[in-house]
């Protein structure tokens, strides 16, 4: 059985899922350095001697310029050996998917070139949006920053 563990970042009423194995660190918002050169980011998280640009997103995946007070957690993701990005969120948890059929790919007519959402999952009557690290990195550093 192909079991997947996904990190769930909840913010603004949406639930964004990324592979748990790519999580580098989870820290509180107070540890965020609010100085950043990355467009669309609200700061940098410093961890393991590296800097991880941090993004606070709306439910439409648009960047907040000012981080809402309810966003309290920073989840930093690794892209292999490279630092990738930090998602700032209201809650962070995990979800275990035992049956990969539960994850439904986003249909062709809904896919756009800049959309990092690749699949959907329904749990406890909540729609969860599944992405992957590469797609999310491209979206944050290219589309959100644009």
């Amino acid at each position: 059985m192909d079991t997947k563990i996904l990190a769930v970042m909840s913010f603004d009423g949406c639930h964004l899922l990324l592979p748990q194995q790519s999580v580098q660190t989870i820290e509180v918002i107070g540890n965020l350095d609010r100085q950043t050169d990355t467009a669309g980011a609200i700061g940098n998280l410093k961890s393991a001697g590296r800097e991880w640009p941090a993004f606070a997103l709306t439910a439409d995946l648009k960047p907040y310029l000012e981080c809402p007070e309810s966003y309290k957690f920073c989840v930093a993701f690794n892209l292999g050996v490279d630092a990738a990005f930090t998602i700032v969120c209201e809650e962070v948890s995990t979800v275990t998917v035992d049956n990969s059929n539960e994850i439904k790919p986003l249909q062709t007519c809904m896919r756009t070139s800049g959309n990092p959402i690749e699949a959907l999952l329904l749990r406890d009557n909540k729609l969860m949006m599944v992405s992957d690290i590469e797609a999310m990195q491209q979206f944050l550093l290219k589309d959100v920053a644009a």
Partner: peptide, 10 residues
């Protein structure tokens, strides 16, 4: 359920 970054008509 609304999905972000999708075409407005879908």
């Amino acid at each position: 359920y609304g999905i972000p970054a999708t075409p407005p008509y879908c």
